[in-house]
């Protein structure tokens, strides 16, 4: 359906599990009928007599499916489906010129239905944009939820976060590779893998091991999770040595490679080749929004 390109297909098992639908009955009118419609159940002919016409139930079914979809996205399976869509750039690319067409992620500004339409989140400039298409901009934001984009980036840490371009000391770097990477990693990795849920998690304990792991297509050196625990200034010299991940076919990795190589750019106002001064009334006032610290230790850890 036009405008519904952002949606992932929710598995039937997920919908059939009543636990996953807890609380939705109070949000959606004609909940039961809508659910039957989604699962393609025949409605009881006796009931059909006193039911409102089909379009109203269809509307409810749309809404119900959207809200189930928002919950489904937060599951492992949902994230994996969306990762595939992300790699294929189904959500479009960032309109900001200096983001150089970074793939976007759908995000809602509210978790309650009919509050706001869907927005697109750019992991590079950490800002949200309105979709360009008319049909897309009419989809409810609650069908994707506020948490999905953040959880997605926390799950697939090879997508550079806001501080991804910075070299981060890899003392306790944990990385969750994307599905495609997982295969190549399980073949190559010699590290003991601890079964964390179902995700193969490899922990690099020292900088030297981080160097070896990063040569095995692991994005440990720029993993944003590492920033949480390590902000010591002493590590800033050693992290320079950690190599960037080697080449891979994965689309998500290529964005990482691109990001770690290139310098962060901010648009600069120029009038006839001269920078517009801060002192001018029309001078730059919003540079802070796009600025990034040059080294991580510039940022206050708290």
């Amino acid at each position: 359906m036009k405008g519904h390109e952002y949606f992932a297909e929710v598995t039937e098992d997920f919908i059939e599990d009543d636990f996953n639908l807890t609380g939705l009955s109070s949000l959606v009118p004609y909940y039961k009928e809508a659910l039957d419609m989604i699962l393609d159940f025949e409605t009881d002919p006796d009931d059909a007599a006193h039911l409102p016409n089909i379009p109203i139930i269809e509307n409810s079914a749309d809404q119900l499916y959207g809200l189930i979809h928002a919950r489904f996205l937060l599951t492992r399976q949902g994230l994996a489906v969306m990762a595939e869509k992300y790699d294929l750039a189904h959500f479009g690319s960032c309109p900001r010129y200096l983001c150089h067409s970074t793939p976007l992620l759908p995000i809602g500004t509210s978790d309650l239905p009919s509050r706001d339409t869907v927005k697109l989140y750019c992991p590079n400039c950490t800002d949200i944009y309105s979709p360009a298409g008319k049909e897309e901009s009419e989809v409810d934001g609650a069908y994707f939820g506020t948490s999905f984009a953040g959880l997605f980036l926390k799950t697939y840490t090879d997508i550079p976060g806001p501080l991804g371009g910075l070299r981060i000391p890899a003392s306790t770097a944990v990385s969750h590779p994307t599905p495609k990477q997982k295969q190549s990693q399980s073949q190559q990795s010699s590290h003991p893998q601890s079964g964390n849920g179902t995700d193969p998690t490899s922990t690099a304990t020292s900088t030297s091991t981080a160097t070896t792991t990063s040569s095995q297509q692991q994005p440990t050196s720029t993993s944003p999770t590492a920033s949480a625990s390590s902000t010591t200034s002493s590590a800033s010299t050693t992290d320079r040595t950690t190599a960037t991940p080697s080449s891979s076919e994965d689309a998500a990795v290529s964005t990482l490679l691109h990001d770690s190589d290139s310098k962060w750019e901010v648009f600069q106002m120029h009038l006839f080749g001269f920078k517009v001064s801060e002192r001018a009334r029309s001078g730059p006032r919003m540079r802070w929004l796009r600025e990034r610290p040059r080294v991580l230790s510039d940022i206050n850890p708290f």
Binding site: I107, Y121, T126, D127, I128, T146, S147, A149, G150, L151, L153, K154, G161, P162, L163, P224, S227, A228, M286, R287, W288, L289, E291, R292, P293, D298, I299, N300, P301
Partner: peptide, 27 residues
């Protein structure tokens, strides 16, 4: 100015919030 900080289940993501604070200090 308004700005966007992503959150998971209402909790701001650490590095995003940190960056936002740094940018706020620049402002």
């Amino acid at each position: 100015p308004e700005r966007f900080v992503p959150a998971i289940f209402g909790f701001k993501i650490h590095e995003h919030a940190r960056l936002a604070r740094w940018q706020e200090s620049k402002r």
